[in-house]
Amino acid sequence: ADYEVNGIRVPYHLIDIVEAGEKYNLFRYQKDFLRVYRDIRERGKMPILCGGSGLYIEAVTKGYSFAEVPENIELRKDLEQMSMEELVRKLESMKSLHNKTDIDTKKRVIRAIEIEIYQQDNPEMRILEGFPIVTRFIGMMISREERVRRIDQRLEERLRNGMIEEVKTLLDKGIAPDDLIYYGLEYKYVTLYLTGHLEYMEMVEKLKVAIHQFAKRQMTWFRGMERRGVKIEWVKP
């Protein structure tokens, strides 16, 4: 399907490409992006990468290299026996925790430990080599107050338009709550509400705060990109 803007059909890619509950990571995204990017360029078209976190945008446009780390079932069974606090301490002993999402849930901590151990044991591991792409970066510059207002308005609209029902349907289909919580933000907090861990208004307020914090971290990342030499053209809506 395509989007339609002012009567013009605009094709899109990499939306709804995995089933709910499935884990999707930066390594897989880079593979999918490069496949689609090459296809678009071979057809003589100009691709537009819209949205996504600063990390994902920078990874595919600057040609970062990533390794595919397989699941270690036995290691996971052992780590499952540890408490969240013990897992975090173990991860902290292996790396600096710059990315706080690594300790957002127990599954994320276990996966982060799994990756660190694999990298230590397999220094020759297969690397997915990206390539730098000549890119024109354009960012939307709005005030903090306007950003907060838009985030809150968008969230309230999504809550009215079936977001809770969507998550409930996924849970009813048998997807484990932890698998939805793993995704963070809307899926996380709506799942916590539906499973009785949060009251409705508590869920709404916590979710607003979490999205505001996420947006702030993204702006910090984009400023970091500029310090690393990336020119971003900031425009007002």
Rank of each mutant, 00 (worst) to 15 (best):
L79W: 00
E80G: 01
E80R: 10
M82N: 05
M82E: 09
M84W: 08
E85C: 00
E85L: 00
E86D: 11
L87G: 04
R89I: 03
K90I: 01
E92Y: 03
E92M: 05
E92S: 13
E92V: 01
S93A: 11
M94G: 02
K95H: 03
S96R: 11
S96L: 08
K100Q: 14
T101M: 13
T101L: 10
D102L: 15
D104R: 15
D104M: 15
T105A: 03
A112R: 07
I113P: 08
I115K: 15
I117K: 14
I117C: 03
Y118C: 01
Y118P: 07
Q119W: 05
Q119Y: 08
Q119C: 11
D121S: 14
E124L: 05
E124H: 14
M125L: 14
M125I: 15
L128M: 12
F131M: 07
P132T: 04
I133N: 02
I133W: 01
T135Y: 05
T135V: 07
F137H: 12
F137Q: 02
F137T: 02
I138S: 00
I138V: 15
G139I: 11
G139V: 10
E146F: 02
E146S: 05
V148K: 14
R149E: 12
R150V: 04
R150H: 09
D152N: 09
D152F: 05
Q153D: 07
R154A: 13
R154C: 07
L155T: 15
E156F: 04
R158A: 14
L159P: 10
R160I: 01
G162K: 11
M163L: 14
I164F: 04
I164W: 04
E165V: 05
E165L: 05
E166L: 12
E166T: 10
V167L: 04
K168I: 04
T169R: 15
L171T: 07
L171Y: 08
G174R: 12
G174K: 11
I175C: 09
I175Y: 07
A176P: 12
A176S: 15
D178H: 09
L180Y: 07
L180I: 09
I181K: 14
I181A: 06
I181F: 03
Y182R: 15
Y183Q: 13
Y183L: 14
Y183E: 15
G184S: 03
L185F: 06
E186S: 12
K188D: 12
Y189A: 02
V190L: 05
T191G: 04
L192N: 06
L192C: 06
Y193S: 14
L194K: 07
L194W: 10
L194A: 11
T195S: 06
G196F: 08
H197V: 06
E199T: 13
Y200S: 08
E202Q: 08
E202R: 02
E202A: 02
V204F: 02
V204E: 06
E205H: 07
K206A: 09
K206V: 02
L207Y: 02
L207A: 05
L207H: 02
K208E: 05
A210F: 04
